[in-house]
Every structure is written in C-alpha cells, then in structure tokens.
C-alpha cells in the first residue's frame, strides 16, 4: 500500500462557525493504482487532496506513506524527536508526490515562461545543472505532446488545454510516485477533456505512477480509475471497484448521483 489515510477528520473553526469538512475518512492508494474520488462540490474532496499534499493539516487521524506515519494532526502533541522524524518522512513523501490543479493558468506565474514553470517541478527536488534540467524539461514537453517551442511561451498565451498539458509536464518531470489530480478537466472544453484524460492514462502507464483523481465528472472517473470512493458532505458513503460501483451502486446517494448522469446521457443519446 502506497498511501493510507485512516480515520481522517478535518474541522474548520473560525470562532463562531465550525465546518466539519471531512469526517472519519478511510482511503488507500496502492502502487500503480488509479483511484477516483467523486462527489459534488462541497463534499470535501479538495480538502482531502490538500491534506494529502500537506497544504492542510488534519484535525485528527493518520496518514501513512509506505507504512510510515507522516501526518501532523492538530489534536496530538508530539515530542520534538517525533516531530522531526515525521517532518523528515513528510519531506520524503512530498518529493514523491505531485499535483495538478483545476485552473492551470492560475498555477503558472505570469512572469515565467512555461518552460521555466515546468522546470520548477524539478528544480527543488534534485541537484542538477541547468542544461540537464532543460533537457528534462523538453522531454516532459514531448511526453505531454506539446511542441518544444511552447517552452518559450507564457501561460496566458496558450489555450486552456495546452496549459493543462504544461501543468502535467511540470507534475511528471520529477517522476513522482503519486499524482494528485484535483478536477483537472473541469475548467476545460469537453473535447479537450477527453484528450487530457487520454494523456493521463498514457502517462500513468508510461511512468508507472499512482493516481488520485478527484472529480465530480463521473464519466471521466469511470474511464480512468480502477477504484472509486464516493463522498457526500465530508463522509465516504461508498467505495469499491469502478465497474462494480457503477453497475451496481449500493448507497442511495450513489444511486442518485449516477442516475442523474445516466438520465442526462439517455436524453442526449437520442
């Protein structure tokens, strides 16, 4: 098991109001596995991703990477030694994980070329000369099917799909073991979405990465992931093998979710 989340809770406390974003979540991702996390907006999916990547700390619970604890939950007092150990392991974990976000143009600095942005993916992780880095960058561009000339372009000069490809380039340039994708296609046109998904499938095979794919778009998840978790209001209501879940959903919410899509599909298919 590559990554294991056990009994994760996240509560946002702003003095007057408390929001229970995630409750009692259990999730695991194996090596070379693509796992999907679906639900509506506000269900807590992004919070889970943030906790995995370290942008948020869980209120309580544990996160284990390759069997070793890396979480720094807010409810636990750690000794200095423990803290140091965990932070070291978390640092190691972060070297092996990357993330792709929903709005690609926002994640690139306006002042950096795409090439420089992509190089950012590896510049902090490994020591190498500028030439070596540039070589890796062009390799990454090739892998995401972007022409080399795009290295000199800026994020605001290219289309949404091209930008997301560049984001993927940045994500894979350091050959991470785990790739988090937080709604990577939601901001893109429908035709482009398919291309991105195809790219993602290819990349995960070529690079032998695990993938946590977060989306509210069920069709995409179905095509990509082997296992799926369904979240509603911060709780996992159902999980299982994709095919099984989609064909025989158990939880009424899952049923509702699937049927709304299927209905729509049915309608448009005519």
């Amino acid at each position: 098991m590559l990554l294991e989340l056990t009994d994760i809770n996240k509560t946002f406390d702003s003095g007057e109001v408390q929001v229970k974003a995630v409750q009692h979540l259990n999730l695991s991702i194996g090596e070379f596995e693509s796992v999907g996390l679906i639900g509506e907006s506000g269900s807590g999916k992004t919070t889970v991703a943030n906790m995995v990547i370290g942008l948020e700390r869980p209120t309580s619970g544990s996160i284990c990477y390759k069997g070793a604890e890396i979480a720094l939950p807010q409810d636990v007092e750690l000794s200095k030694a423990q803290l140091k150990e965990r932070q070291a392991r978390a640092a190691e974990f972060r070297r092996d994980v990357q993330m792709v976000f929903q709005h690609p143009a926002e994640t690139f600095s306006e002042r950096m070329t795409l090439g420089a942005g992509i190089e950012e993916g590896v510049i902090y992780r490994k020591q190498m000369t500028a030439d070596e880095r540039r070589k890796l960058m062009y390799e990454a561009l090739e892998m995401v099917r972007l022409p080399a000339s795009y290295a000199k372009k800026y994020a605001w000069e290219v289309s949404g799909g091209e930008c997301q490809r560049a984001a993927f380039a940045r994500a894979i340039i350091s050959r991470p073991k785990l790739l988090l994708c937080d709604e990577p296609t939601s901001a893109l046109d429908v035709t482009v979405q398919a291309q991105i998904i195809e790219l993602l499938i290819q990349l995960s095979h070529e690079l032998r990465m695990s993938c946590l794919f977060i989306s509210h778009d069920l069709a995409l998840v179905r095509g990509l992931c082997s296992r799926v978790y369904v979240m509603k209001d911060g709780v996992v209501v159902e999980q299982g093998e994709t095919k099984q879940l989609f064909e025989h959903p158990q939880d009424p919410y899952t049923v509702e979710l699937l049927s709304s899509v299927l209905d729509f599909r049915k309608k448009t298919e005519r």
Binding site: F101, E106, T107, F108, Y124
Partner: peptide, 26 residues
C-alpha cells in the same frame, strides 16, 4: 493563496524561492 504559489509549494519550493520568484515580482 494564489494558484501559482500553491503550485510552487507543491513543487517543493522553499519559502525563500517562493518569496523571491513568485511573490516579490507581483
């Protein structure tokens, strides 16, 4: 909180790098 800073953080950028490359120019 901007997207590029988050992405840079995910890439493992140090605070100094983030401050100088991403925040300062803006």
């Amino acid at each position: 909180e901007s997207g590029s800073v988050r992405a840079a953080w995910v890439c493992g950028a140090s605070p100094f790098a983030i401050l100088t490359k991403y925040i300062l120019p803006n």
